[in-house]
Structures are given as C-alpha cells and as structure tokens.
C-alpha cells in the first residue's frame, strides 16, 4: 500500500473517531444535568424523596373509606437560621382515606423585624408521600411575618384511598427556612 495516502486516511479516521467519542462525553455531561429533572420525575411517581402531592379540590372523590382509619402526625421544624416559633395545632389526627380534613400550624416571628420564610413539606414514610395530597397549604408560597406577628397557617389535605394497606401512620413534617433575601 502506498504510505502517504493510507496515512492521511488513517489520520482522518482517527480524528473522526475522536470527535465522535468527544460527542459521547459531551452527551454524558448533559446526561449528568438531565439526572436532576429525571430524579424529580421519578420522585413524583414513586414518592422516593417524601415530597407530598398537590391535588385540585374539584378532582377529589366524594366518597371516603369509613371503615379505615389512619393516624396522621404533624411535626414542625424550624431551621436555626430563622428565629421563628413553629408548631402544629394538634400533634395527630385520626383520618379516613378519601375524606378532606382541615388543620393548621402556628407560626410566630420572635424578632423585631419582618421576615419571609419558606416551608418545605415532607411525608414519612416516603412511600406514602404520593398518597398524601394537599388542596391548600402555606407551603405553596412564601410566608411573611411582621415583627412579633403570630399567625395560623392552614393545611387542607386528603389521604388517598389507594394508600397501601400496611401504612397505618403518616407523618407530615414541615421545615421552615428563611427565604433568600432577594425573594
């Protein structure tokens, strides 16, 4: 074979292969970022991270399961960077799956300045999260408390009738964080 022609050919081949592999590497870089929304989607489907669902009141079933009772516990956490007091009105409720319930939390700003907080909801056990739906919650938006203000923060929720039968206790927990200054 004639050296130069085949060398040039091979050099082009090498360059083409290298570019293809570089494209694969770039695609994998993109995949790394894509894992974030992908993970959120998986969490939404499986409740993997214990984040709760949101339901429209209109779409809720009108019938409920009168024979079954589950305990819903309410837990409150405040991040230490936020000088608020925060507690549930009741520590637990007995609920029927499929029925709509109301309760509230209490929050008070201990400081002499208005502060904006943001509540992150979480349900344990994680598998039950997707069966815990809220139609109204203070965690849907940021909450502002004036200096020394105390306020009731309502939650309206329904536990789905599809809740796996082995789950007898659900814990709804909120962690209040200080919202970033610029909103």
């Amino acid at each position: 074979m004639s050296g130069d022609a085949s060398n040039t050919g091979r050099r082009t081949d090498n360059r083409r292969s290298a570019l293809r592999l570089a494209a694969v590497a770039l695609a994998m870089f993109g995949f790394g970022w894509a894992l974030i929304p992908l993970y959120d989607v998986i969490c939404e489907i499986t409740g993997l991270d214990g984040r709760t669902g949101v339901a429209q009141a209109a779409s809720l079933p009108t019938q409920f399961d009168a024979d079954r009772t589950v305990t819903v516990q309410f837990v409150a956490n405040v991040n230490s960077a936020l000088s608020w007091d925060f507690a549930p009105a009741v520590i637990s409720m007995q609920v029927h799956p499929g029925k709509l319930y109301d309760t509230h939390y209490l929050a008070r700003n201990r400081t002499a300045a208005a502060i904006v907080g943001r509540a992150v909801p979480n349900v344990a056990p994680n598998v039950a999260a997707r069966y815990f739906n809220k139609t109204e919650c203070f965690c849907f938006s940021e909450q502002s408390l004036a200096a020394g203000e105390q306020r009731e923060m309502p939650v309206r929720f329904v536990v789905s009738r599809d809740l796996p039968p082995e789950v007898k206790v659900l814990t709804l927990s909120y962690t209040f964080y200080r919202a970033p200054e610029n909103g």
Binding site: V24, A25, L26, M28, F29, G30, F31, G32, W33, L35
Partner: peptide
C-alpha cells in the same frame, strides 16, 4: 467517557 462527565456535571 461515560462516568467522568457526570462527575463534572455534579
């Protein structure tokens, strides 16, 4: 090629 870019992303 499959793993290192994911670390770079993270």
């Amino acid at each position: 090629i499959a793993a290192m870019p994911v670390l770079a992303g993270a």
